[in-house]
């Protein structure tokens, strides 16, 4: 039972809010999990083609993006600590760093995809359909869908974090009402979790 001192904010329920966020995260697990199942079966059926196609990907850019996401996960986790310690300035700073890192991730992705397009590789491209094996077409199809869907989550995560940032600035998200920031953090860590599996499965096939 909640105590009565929170009567001025009758609709604030941090436990329920967190539970709701987790339920949403479980649905995301099924979304990406389904794609991982498709990936694993096609890889099992086309091991050589997946290896050949995987070597086309740039491990260095992949590794840099991995580290960027890991650092951004740390900064947003730290921002909740800063909020709880009532250090608003540091909270805002850490959130801005997180958003900037997300942006850098997307810029890297832009160049990475750009190089692929330059080499004539995009879903349904003539080069892909005419010159490559079925397994390679499947690999690049999954690559674009899964990293694309992940990039979409990065964009949504950035918007989520920016909303939280605005609310921290206004003071409606504060040490006593941190739920929105915590949930933005949970979402951002989910984006990180997905990448933790995407990176080895696409970039580290040899």
């Amino acid at each position: 039972m909640e105590n009565v001192t929170q009567h001025s904010e009758p609709h604030y329920d941090p436990e329920a809010s967190k539970l709701g966020m987790w339920l949403f995260i479980f649905t995301e697990l099924l979304l990406f999990g389904g794609l991982f199942i498709v990936y694993s079966i096609y890889r099992f059926l086309n091991p050589v083609a997946f290896q050949l196609a995987g070597e086309e990907l740039n491990v260095v850019i992949g590794a840099i993006n991995t580290i960027i996401l890991l650092v951004s996960s740390m900064t947003i986790a730290m921002s909740t600590t800063a909020l709880q310690q009532k250090n608003k300035k540091l909270t805002l700073f850490l959130l801005i760093v997180t958003v900037v890192l997300a942006l850098v991730f997307l810029v890297n992705k832009y160049f990475e995809w750009g190089t692929k397009f330059h080499h004539g590789i995009w879903p349904g491209s003539p080069h892909l359909i005419n010159d490559m094996s079925k397994g390679e077409i499947l690999f690049f199809g999954l690559y674009f869908v899964m990293t694309g869907l992940h990039a979409l989550h990065i964009i949504i995560g950035m918007i989520f974090i920016l909303v939280a940032l605005k609310r921290v600035q206004k003071g409606t998200v504060n040490a006593d009402r941190p739920s929105l920031l915590e949930n933005a953090g949970l979402y951002w860590h989910l984006v990180d979790l997905i990448w933790i599996f995407l990176f080895p499965l696409f970039y580290l096939i040899h």
């Binding site: 491990v59 890991l70 650092v71 996960s73 986790a77 730290m78 600590t81 580290l204």
Partner: peptide
């Protein structure tokens, strides 16, 4: 409240394991 340094140590562990998994490829 989780201290900042705990998050930093976790980050170091995560980055180390990333490099280890890249090393594993070779």
């Amino acid at each position: 409240i989780v201290p900042y340094r705990v998050y930093f140590y976790i980050l170091l562990a995560l980055i180390t394991m990333t490099f280890m998994s890249i090393g594993l490829v070779h």
